[in-house]
Amino acid sequence: MTRKSGESIPLSIKISNYVPYLLLLPTLAYMLFFIGYPLVEGVALAFFDEQGHFTWANVNYLLYDPGSLFWDALKYTILLAAVIIPIQVSVAFGLALLFNAKFPGKNLALYTVILPLTISDVAAGLIWYVMLGQYGFFNKLLMDLGVISHPIIFFGIKNMEFLAIVMTEVWRATAIVFVIIFAGLQMISHEYYEAAEVFGATTWQRFRYIIFPLLLPSLQAALIIRTLFAFQIFGVVWTLAGRDIPVLAGEAYYAQTTLLRPGVAALYALIIAALSVSVGAIYIKFFKAKYLEAGM
């Protein structure tokens, strides 16, 4: 009845269909240049020499050089994650439940609890260096109370440094987990608990059958994020223990700035990336069903 409508649609309208892509173009271009390209370049640095020939030199250094702490770094990175994450998740979960109650001064308490989120890991390391030093607050307090007679020495002793790192990381990054779980908890309507209460559920039953299942997606999200960040642990370790406790990111930094071997540094970085991607993939596969159902 009319002409073929395709002909009469003005050019400006046809272009307007591509507006969202145009809006996304700068982002994609930027990411290609600042993430995609460095990734490729990173592979080149790690596996090719300056003449562009494939080389195992960096891999060999990592695995066989007596100066390389690769296996220790891998061990400590994973060990720290394995010790820290369960503590963080349980403490954060408890905190979130605590902050779900009403009490006077709640906002002030909330802001205090999230305070560590706003400081760098270097600062967090230094703060606990102040706390745990030989003349630090911790030792002075315990000695004054008569709990100990000699100061506990944290720094310079490997196991104690490990402990200090765990304490610092739990203090610093529990807030991240807390914020995620707390946000999830606040999205659960109060009517759900109240309905359960009306039907005679006990506090434990309300937790077990109402809160916990509804909170599971948030818990999973927190777990994924925390695990991936844990592989990048650097600032806290570097300030509290240096290379006494080697970690992957620390070794990358050391290789880059002290050894001046960018190839080794790039290799470490790629290992961190590979570890993150594979663990992330495993988590997502493992959680997938419920994670997606929750629309997250």
């Binding site: 892509y21 490729v40 992330g280």
Partner: peptide, 29 residues
Amino acid sequence: FRGKDSLKLFIVALRMFPMMVIAVPLLVL
């Protein structure tokens, strides 16, 4: 728009990518 969900998922995933990876190669550039 077409591809919106995958693009968004890509951004969400990228947020968790260890950006420290780009530092060393970026210095070369």
